[in-house]
Design a protein around this nucleic acid. Structure first.
Lengths: 144, 144
DNA sequence: TAAAATTAATTGTCAAAACAACAATTACAT
DNA sequence: ATGTAATTGTTGTTTTGACAATTAATTTTA
């Protein structure tokens, strides 16, 4: 009996991430931020990588190009993000947050941290180390 | 500096589960099973709980009622599942797999196990124990 | 240099997730 | 026993995900 025969951890990861996303959405809603979890994911990545291309955003967040296009469309419509034609490559857009977008980021960030802390309670640094090692291993196994 | 301040594990879980789902979908496609990952999730739960209600399916898989309704609709349309009116409660359906549905389950199961084993390689039983403990802890923290 | 291949982004379609509103049935409370 | 509340499932709408096809621009290579 190999550990990989045990009740599928796939279900456990799947249901856990769903609950986290759900809790995160509730918290964002309570703060009246009017963004979805996926919109927040892009906002966070754009904030930390101003001028990133949609393609790179997609690779970092594991979203395909059409999905990124549509979420950025929504962010632009909400006035949170803007596309600027790339100087070096006219196929690309450099994506930025607007001032409003940065404000939303700064409001959302502590909320996200709070949910993260709450969900991690009872767990310690060693757990974190092992947890990320396992997830990284699975990620590598599955993508190579 | 608390471990929960580190780069969000939320992203890591999120991207990893996406890669697993993607790999699983590829494997199911290669075997020409003509089902999606979420359809497989329901097939698996129905197989192991014949006559389960849609509501219970939703709780087990963390899908809301409309989502379950629609996936079951698709499974019924494909001839893999059937609804039977509950004897005791006329609001409920008892959901079953058809013979074809069971065949699909038996074809899909080894494929799923193979992907699971591949993604778990390099990891051991203790990893599994810790991994499930952490996921269970997060799940409890977030839902209480 | 010209043709071919690759890349970045968009559009269309269907599956799935979240939410709200709703219908039908059952359970509860007085 | 009647009216209220709760439960089960469906339908409609918007967002996200996967896939295919398309456009425009850039890179490769012949």
């Amino acid at each position: 009996m190999n550990s990989s025969d045990q009740k599928a951890y796939f279900f456990k990861i799947d249901t856990t991430i769903k609950k986290i996303r759900y809790a995160l959405q509730k918290a964002l809603d309570e703060a009246n931020l009017d963004i979805t979890v996926d919109q927040w994911v892009l906002i966070d990545h754009i904030f930390r990588n101003p001028g990133i291309s949609q393609n790179d955003l997609g690779e970092m967040t594991v979203k395909d190009n059409p999905t990124v296009t549509r979420i950025i469309d929504l962010l632009v419509k909400k006035g949170l993000s803007e596309r600027k034609m790339s100087e070096s490559d006219r196929r690309r857009f450099d994506v930025f947050l607007t001032e409003t977008g940065k404000e939303v980021y700064h409001k959302a960030h502590p909320i996200v941290v709070h949910v993260r802390r709450k969900s991690w309670s009872g767990l310690n640094d060693e757990d974190y180390f092992i947890f990320t090692r396992i997830l990284d291993t699975i990620y590598k196994n599955i993508t190579t």
